[in-house]
Design a protein around this nucleic acid. Structure first.
Length: 711
DNA sequence: AGCTTTCAACTTTTT
DNA sequence: GTTGAAAGCT
C-alpha cells in the first residue's frame, strides 16, 4: 500500500489518483473534502508536477491558510523537509489574491499600473455616492449592489445600459459608467475587478493569456458551488488544453446565490468538459445517522443536479430534538438550558464526552438573533464568541492607517488621499479639498500631483497651500523611507515613527470623548502595526499566499496586499467558548452539539415583509420564489450537517413584530426533516440529457440577445 | 426650519 | 447594538 492511499476511502482515492484530466468531486458535507484536496496536491507533486505549477484556489483567506497548513503537514510527513519546501511553492490562495497577482504582473494590457490600489466596500460606496451627485447612503447602496451584481454577471456599463429594462436601470448604468471612469483615473480596482479584469486580460490579449495558460499544470478549486459566472470564465481561460483540474464542491451547500454564485457552473462542467470524471463522496465522517437522515430528508425536495445520499457508520445516535419555546427570550433560555444539561451529562448516553464549551454552537439565520442568545448566555455566565461581526479591518482607525499606506504605494489613489489628508485633521478643510479636486480634474491630475502645481495658487489661498505642501513633502519622504524598509525590526520602527509624526494617538484621544473607547482604538492601532511588522519579517503565514512565508518582505509588498485581508491571523481557534454564528458563517465548521434557533416561517425560510412576491427585490435579476426557497432549504441543510453528535432545532411559538406579537409558525423544514421521503428516483443519464437540452436552449437564447446588442 | 431625541426594526458576507 | 426614520423641541 502506498503511503499516499493510506486513510482514504475508495472514492477519495479515486479522486486523488485521477491526475490527467478534468475532475469534479462532489463532496457531501463532512465527507473529507479538504483531505482530498491536500492529498491530491501531494500526489501531484509525487508524480513529478513541479509544485509551483499547482494552484489551489479558495474563497477565503482562512480556507487558504488551513489548506496550506494541512498540505505542509502532509508533505512533510511524506517527504520530510523537501516536502515542506515543496508545499511552500504551491500556489494556495483566494480567487482574489490570484487576480491581484495576475494584474500586478501583467495588468498593463488592461490599463493598470502595477501599483494600483484595491478599494474596499466603503471606498466604493463613497465613490458611487460621489458619482451619483452626493446622494444619500441608501440610494448609493442600492446602486452599489446593482453594479456589483452586473459585474459579477460579466457586464460592463455599456452592456448593462444595453440590457437595461427600465429607467431605473438606465440611471444605474449611467452611474456605473461614471464609477468606472473614476476607477480608471484613480488607478484603483474594486473586488469584482480582481476577477473581471484578469478575465478581460486573458480574453483580449494573447500574450498574457499564453503566459497564464501555461503557468499551471493543475488547478484545484475549493467550494466550487460558490463560484460566479466571471470566476468560471476566468478558470476556463486559465486551463491549458487538454484541461487538467479538480473542482470540489457540493450543490446542496450552495448558499451564496444572492451574491452571484451560480449552480450553472456546476451544470455546465460536464458539457464544457466531456471527459469530466465525476466522483461522489457520500460517506460522512462527521454526524450520526439520525442527524444525516434529517439532513437527507430536508434536502430531498430540492431538484438534484447530481443525486447523492450521505451515510455514516457512526451509529444511530441521539434523536434530533424539536424544541418549541413560548417566545424568543424563552427560546434563548432553552438553548442555554440544553447546553447546561448536556454538560451535566444526564441527558445523553452517546457523545457525552464532548462537554467543553467549545463543543457547543448555536446557529441562526440573521445576525440580530444573536442578541437575545448573548443575553441568555451572559446571564448563565457561559463564555461565548459571536463569529462574524465587524472585521478588524473595518474599524475606522485601521482604515485611516490603510489609507495612508495605500497612498504611499499609489499616489493616484484619490480616495486614499482624501482620507489620509484629513486623519488626523491638519487644518485642511472641506473647501480646500473641493478646490483641489476641481483643479485636479481640470488638469487631469491626481490630487496628490495637483498639490505641487504652481498654478494652484490661483484657486486656493496661500495658507491652505502651505498645509498641502507640508503634507505632500511629508508623504514623499515617507514613501522614500517605506521603499527602503524591510524586515521585522525596521518595519516596526518605521511604523511607530510614522504614527508619532502624524500624532495619531493624540488624535484618537482628542476626537473621542469616551476615553475607554479611544484607548481600545489605540490598542487596535498597536496590534495593527505589530501585525504589519511581523508580516514584513515573514513571521506570519502569508494569508495572501503569493510568496513563500519564510521570506522577508518589503514593507511595500505587504502594504499592497492589505486590502485583501479581513482577519488577523492571530488568536482565535482554540478558545474554549460556545460559538454563536449565522448559518452562512457556519459552513465548513462542525461542533459535537448544535442548536438551530429561530427555525420559524418568515425567518427560515426567510421572507421579506411584503408577502405574495408582488414586489420584486430591488435591482436584483429575477430570481423566482421557488429558487429562493431552494436556497433557504440548502441553508437549513448546511445547519443540520454542522452537528456531530446531537442536534436540536427550536422555534418560538410567539414572536414580536412591532408592538404586537404574532404566532410563530414552525418552519416547513422542521416537518420535512422528520418525513421519510428522500428516495431519489431520477436516473442520472436522463438528467444529463435534460441538461444538454437546457443549455442548448439557453445558448440559442443568448446568441439571439447578443445579435440584438449593438456592442 | 433645523436640530435633538426617541423608537423601532433589523437577511445572508467575502474579497 | 446600531442605524434610520419619525416625532418633538427650540
Amino acid at each position: 500500500m502506498s503511503s499516499l492511499g493510506s486513510g482514504l476511502n475508495l472514492a477519495q482515492q479515486e479522486a486523488v489518483n485521477f491526475l490527467h484530466g478534468p475532475c469534479l468531486v462532489l463532496a457531501g458535507a463532512g465527507s473529507g473534502k479538504t483531505r482530498v484536496i491536500t492529498h491530491k496536491i501531494a500526489r501531484l507533486i509525487q508524480s513529478g508536477v513541479p509544485p509551483e505549477q499547482i494552484a489551489a484556489i479558495t474563497f477565503t483567506n482562512k480556507a487558504a491558510a488551513e489548506m496550506r497548513e494541512r498540505a505542509k503537514g502532509l508533505l512533510m510527513a511524506q517527504m520530510g523537509k523537501a516536502g515542506a519546501k515543496a508545499a511552500g511553492q504551491v500556489v494556495i490562495c483566494t480567487f482574489h489574491a490570484l487576480g491581484v497577482r495576475m494584474l500586478r504582473e501583467s495588468g498593463e494590457s488592461v490599463g493598470l499600473k502595477p501599483q494600483f490600489s484595491i478599494l474596499d466596500t466603503d471606498d466604493v460606496l463613497s465613490m458611487i455616492k460621489d458619482a451619483g451627485g452626493n446622494t444619500d447612503n441608501k440610494q448609493a447602496r442600492i446602486w452599489q449592489w446593482a453594479i456589483s451584481s452586473w459585474k459579477n454577471a460579466g457586464l460592463n456599463s455599456a452592456q448593462a445600459a444595453a440590457q437595461a429594462k427600465d429607467e431605473d436601470e438606465r440611471i444605474t448604468a449611467k452611474i456605473m459608467e461614471r464609477y468606472e471612469e473614476r476607477l480608471t483615473a484613480y488607478q484603483a480596482v474594486d473586488f469584482d475587478d480582481l476577477i473581471g479584469l484578469p478575465l478581460k486580460m486573458l480574453s483580449h490579449h494573447e500574450q498574457p493569456a499564453a503566459v497564464w495558460r501555461e503557468k499551471f499544470a493543475h488547478i484545484l478549486v475549493d467550494e466550487y458551488q460558490d463560484t460566479n459566472a466571471v470566476q468560471y470564465e476566468l478558470l476556463k481561460k486559465m486551463m491549458a488544453s487538454p484541461a487538467r483540474f479538480t473542482t470540489v464542491g457540493d450543490d446542496d451547500q450552495s448558499i451564496y446565490g444572492w451574491r452571484g454564485a451560480t449552480l450553472d457552473n456546476l451544470k455546465k462542467l460536464p458539457l464544457d468538459f466531456p471527459a469530466l470524471k465525476v466522483i461522489k463522496l457520500e460517506q460522512n465522517y462527521r454526524s450520526t445517522s439520525a442527524i444525516l437522515r434529517a439532513a437527507n430528508n430536508v434536502i430531498g425536495p430540492n431538484p438534484k443536479l447530481f443525486p447523492k445520499k450521505l451515510w455514516s457508520d457512526l451509529g444511530e445516535g441521539e434523536p434530533v430534538r424539536i424544541v418549541d419555546a413560548d417566545n424568543e427570550e424563552h427560546e434563548a433560555e432553552r438553548a442555554v438550558a440544553r447546553i447546561q444539561s448536556l454538560r451535566a451529562g444526564s441527558e445523553v448516553t452517546q457523545g457525552n464526552q464532548y462537554k467543553e464549551w467549545k463543543d457547543f454552537a448555536i446557529l441562526y439565520r440573521a445576525n440580530h438573533q444573536a442578541r437575545l442568545l448573548e443575553q441568555a448566555l451572559r446571564k448563565a455566565s457561559i463564555p461565548y464568541k459571536v463569529s462574524g461581526g465587524q472585521s478588524f479591518f473595518d474599524r475606522a482607525e485601521i482604515k485611516d492607517l490603510c489609507a495612508w499606506l495605500r497612498l504611499l504605494t499609489n499616489n493616484d489613489d484619490d480616495p486614499a488621499f482624501l482620507r489620509a489628508v484629513t486623519s488626523p485633521k491638519r487644518g485642511i478643510g472641506h473647501t480646500t479639498l473641493q478646490q483641489l479636486g476641481i483643479f485636479a480634474s481640470q488638469y487631469k491630475l491626481s490630487m496628490f500631483e495637483a498639490l505641487f502645481s504652481n498654478s494652484l495658487s490661483a484657486s486656493i489661498n496661500a495658507r491652505s497651500i502651505g498645509g498641502l505642501h507640508e503634507f505632500g513633502r511629508y508623504l514623499n519622504d515617507l514613501e522614500y523611507r517605506a521603499r527602503h524598509t524591510s524586515g521585522f525590526e525596521a518595519a516596526g520602527e518605521f511604523l511607530r515613527d510614522w504614527l508619532k509624526d502624524i500624532g495619531y494617538e493624540k488624535h484618537l484621544f482628542e476626537s473621542e470623548d469616551n476615553e475607554k473607547l479611544a484607548a481600545s482604538r489605540w490598542t487596535n492601532v498597536l496590534d495593527f502595526i505589530d501585525w504589519m511588522g511581523k508580516r514584513c519579517g515573514g513571521q506570519v503565514d502569508d494569508a495572501a499566499g503569493l510568496t513563500m512565508s519564510t521570506e522577508s518582505k518589503s514593507l511595500f509588498e505587504v502594504i499592497q496586499t492589505i486590502s485583501l485581508l479581513s482577519t488577523l491571523t492571530a488568536k482565535e481557534g482554540d478558545q474554549n467558548v460556545v460559538t454563536l454564528s449565522t448559518l452562512h458563517a457556519s459552513k465548513g465548521l462542525e461542533w459535537p452539539h448544535v442548536t438551530l434557533a429561530g427555525v420559524v416561517e418568515g425567518l427560515l425560510p426567510f421572507r421579506p415583509e411584503e408577502e405574495d412576491g408582488t414586489k420584486p427585490v430591488e435591482g436584483k435579476i429575477s430570481d423566482s420564489l421557488a429558487a429562493r426557497i431552494q436556497e433557504e432549504r440548502r441553508l437549513m441543510y448546511v445547519g443540520i450537517t454542522r452537528a456531530q453528535r446531537t442536534l436540536s432545532v427550536s422555534y418560538p411559538k410567539r414572536r414580536k413584530k412591532g408592538r404586537d406579537t404574532v404566532a410563530g409558525i414552525p418552519s416547513r423544514f422542521i416537518a420535512e426533516m422528520a418525513l421519510d421521503q428522500a428516495t431519489i428516483k431520477e436516473n442520472p443519464m436522463d438528467r444529463l440529457a435534460a441538461l444538454k437540452a437546457e443549455f442548448a436552449k439557453k445558448a440559442a437564447q443568448s446568441a439571439a440577445e447578443k445579435a440584438a446588442m449593438p456592442i
